[in-house]
Every structure is written in C-alpha cells, then in structure tokens.
Amino acid sequence: MQKQKKPFWQDRRYVPYLYILPNMVLFMVFMIIPIFMSFYYSTVQWNGLGKPKFIGMQNYVYIFKDTVFLKSLFNTFLFTALSVPIIMVLSLLFAMLLNTKIPLRGFIRSAIYAPAVVSTVVVGTVFTWIFNDQLGLINYIINIFGGKAIQWMNDTRFAMAMIVFTTVWQRTGYNMVIYLAGLQGISRELLEAAEIDGATSWQAFRHVTLPLLRHTHVFILVTCMIHSFRSFDLIYTMTRGGPLNATKTIVMYVYEQAFNKNYYGRASAAGIVLFVIMMVFTILRNRAEKED
C-alpha cells in the first residue's frame, strides 16, 4: 500500500522552517539588514531626502573632530566610571547586610528592589521634581544644613551628579538581588573554617567571600557597563543632554544627529563607534568567562 503523502505543513522536513519563519523574517528585516545598512549609511552624506552621497570615511573624521561628539564620548565614560562602582559597592554592601539575620529582612529587600520595577521615565520625572531648583526636596535638605540651593538642571557642574545619583537609586536594588544569589551560593563551612582559623570578619570577607563572588562581580560589572553605555531614557527625560552638553552621552548624540538634525550619516558613524565599544566589552566578558 502506498503511504499517503502528508501536506507540507505536517511534514517533519518542512515544519521547522514554518516555525522559525515569522521570527526569521522579523530578524532579517529589522535586525540583520539594518546592521549592514548602518555600516553603509556611516559612509554617506544624507539628510533622509534625495540620494545618499558616498563620502567614504569623512563622517568618522567629522565626528572625531566634533567637540560635541568628543564631549559625549567623555561623558559616557564619566557616567559609567561614576555610577558603576557606586552601584557595585552599594549592592554588595546591601546584599552582605541582608545575608545576615536581621529583622524585617523581606521588607527591606523588597523596598530596595522596588525602584527596579518602575519605568525609567517615571524615575526621571520623580527625580526632576525632587531635584527641582526652587521647590525640590534636595535643595530643601541642602538648605537645612546651611548650604546654598543648587541649580541642578542648569549647572554644568552638578547635572551629571544628579543623573548619577538617580541611576544609583534605580539600579542598586536589582544588582543587590544578583549579589544575594551569589552570596547564597557560598557555603557556610568555608566562612566558619576561616573563623576557626582566627580570621576577623573583615579578613573573612576580604579573602573568602570577595574572591568566591568572582563570577558575580564580572556579571554585574559587564551588565552595568552595557546598561550605562546604552541608557537613554533617563537622560532624555531629565536633561535632554543639557545643560550645555554636560550630560550628553553617545546615545543622546546619535539620537540628536539623526532625528533632530537629520544627519543620518554622522549619526550612523557615531552608532558604529558605540557598537565597537560594546564589542570590546563582549570580548572582555567572553575572555573572563573562559578563564574560569
């Protein structure tokens, strides 16, 4: 008897292609093709209308001479260098404290995690209000201690500090939870052994806990750095990169060049620079993972 032929949507040879089709089409159109287009756009002069004009590497030459781009690059690194270490130290400290027997443990953990659930825009609006120069709470507190009110939104010296503070508030709880998971993986016996050998709690922390959290450190460091290099919503909501570019990061620069000024070529070139930096992070992370 001849085996009945199945229609192709029930044939095991064709089914997987059908299943991956929607995903792959989306990927092709909105991810893979755009990546190649982006490299192409970075070599043309184009304002979105008319024909793009090929100009080779001139966009890259231009942005590396553009003081605003260099400032954005500097600000991106500054923002990362300020916020990531503070977030890491605080989240580890909080995790250590919550890993002991203290009252209200569950409540405190949830409270510190809570900011992670809220959208960055909401965080930005609340802190815009808290940092308000005339009516804000922070200036009120400064006032109580006899200081002079700070124009957080308009003072180039303080705007970045405000962004960093807000980022730390938002991101610490999330990373604390990851550190807590890491701490719970450390066996009690190791710490007890250190104690029996006469180690102080600082020594036990320094020589047992800290090295054993190596993987967690790397994971948090890399995710925090990626996050801070990519972050857009907070700066857009609070300062739009101002005052006088004091909080402008590469991401803001790309957005502005593309969608406010219609310099698609320059914006693409700046995007590619960001892409290269991210690739370096990825390579570093992969190397760190391989070493273990």
């Binding site: 755009p34 990519r230 914006a267 995007g271 892409f275």
Partner: peptide, 12 residues
C-alpha cells in the same frame, strides 16, 4: 545580534 545596541539599527 544579542549585543547590538539599538543605536546601531535604529536609523535603518
């Protein structure tokens, strides 16, 4: 594509 930032693809 896991590591590609949005800023690279957003214009295209």
């Amino acid at each position: 594509t896991l590591m590609i930032p949005l800023q690279v693809t957003m214009i295209p």
